[in-house]
Amino acid sequence: MAVTHDDLAPTPKSSDLGSKTGAFLMILSIVLGLFCFILCLIAEATRSQVKWSATNDEGKGIESQCTYTDSGKLPLLSATAAFLALAIAMVVQHTYLLVAVSKSDSLVEIAWEDPDSAIPNTLTWQAGFFFVSTWMSFAVGEILLLIGLSIESGHLKNWKTPRPSCLIIRQGLFTSAGVFGLVTVFLASALYITALRAERYFHTRENTRRHVLEVSAMYASPPTSPGRINTIRAVHNEEPLPRQDQNLHTLYYYLRAFDKQSSLV
């Protein structure tokens, strides 16, 4: 079985950005946001209504009194579950982001980048926008749900008893809370993606810088002398033999060799 580069690469920790744990928590938060939206739609469809009726108060005139059409238990339970689901999604997303960003050295390096750099500035502004927008949307959604909870919990008992005034929730309040909850989890996911883009940008830039330094160091070093490469060094306790170069022989050496051969003949 062939070994690839991905097999040799180190496995990211669960607290690192881009890990499987981070992806799972982001998906879980989105699912919780969808669950919150569905529960808000249920609360909107089952919210309490008011029914007015005219009564004669023993000759004092006709008075209008109201009664609730339901006790409000179902919308109260739905709104409570939506409130908790949105809070859990927010806590899960931002707790993970806080831990991952605090352990990421690359994001700290980007924070101290040159202010004239375009990409780090763009990523910083995007992260700030998503962070503020997430908390604002979360606050509005939770406040709307709290208003609905307080109103629906006011007539759990004696809801059939006529009364001069009845407080009900306006149409669309729970739906608006669900929309804000859904927007909250998507903005938090966009914040996570922005942080992940910033970390990958830092790693890509560091790899490019390291490659440039290696190439520049290779071309900046002086070439090695061929004579040094071909030099034969003696091993310990070994005497090297002197090298005789035939180009150093004189004409007298060749004439003497010729005379010796002639005398032998």
Rank of each mutant, 00 (worst) to 15 (best):
E44Y: 07
A220N: 08
G33F: 05
I193S: 01
L187S: 04
D6Q: 08
A188F: 01
A177H: 07
S176D: 09
R228V: 02
S15K: 06
K73N: 07
T11P: 02
Y254K: 06
N237Q: 05
C40D: 14
L28T: 09
L255A: 12
G22M: 01
P115R: 08
A234K: 14
S153L: 04
L17D: 00
D16P: 00
L74V: 15
F258V: 11
T55L: 14
V179N: 06
T184L: 03
Y192T: 00
A220F: 07
C40S: 14
A190I: 00
S19R: 02
I147G: 09
T208C: 12
G148D: 03
T224S: 13
K13G: 03
I30V: 09
A188I: 01
A2G: 06
S104C: 15
L34G: 12
C36T: 15
V99P: 00
L39H: 10
L146I: 11
D70H: 11
W135Y: 13
L146Q: 01
L39Y: 07
E152F: 12
Q261L: 14
M26G: 02
T21Y: 03
T134L: 02
A9H: 04
R228E: 10
L76D: 03
S71I: 04
F35A: 15
E214G: 11
M1C: 02
H155P: 05
V108S: 14
A139G: 13
W112D: 11
T11V: 14
Q93L: 04
K20N: 03
R205D: 10
L187R: 03
P240N: 07
T46L: 10
S104A: 13
F202G: 12
L17K: 00
L25V: 11
V132G: 02
L28P: 01
V92M: 10
G172D: 06
K20I: 02
Y253S: 13
Q65F: 08
S153V: 01
W125E: 07
A87P: 01
K51C: 04
L144G: 07
P162A: 10
F131Q: 00
R228P: 00
N158M: 04
T21K: 04
T161G: 00
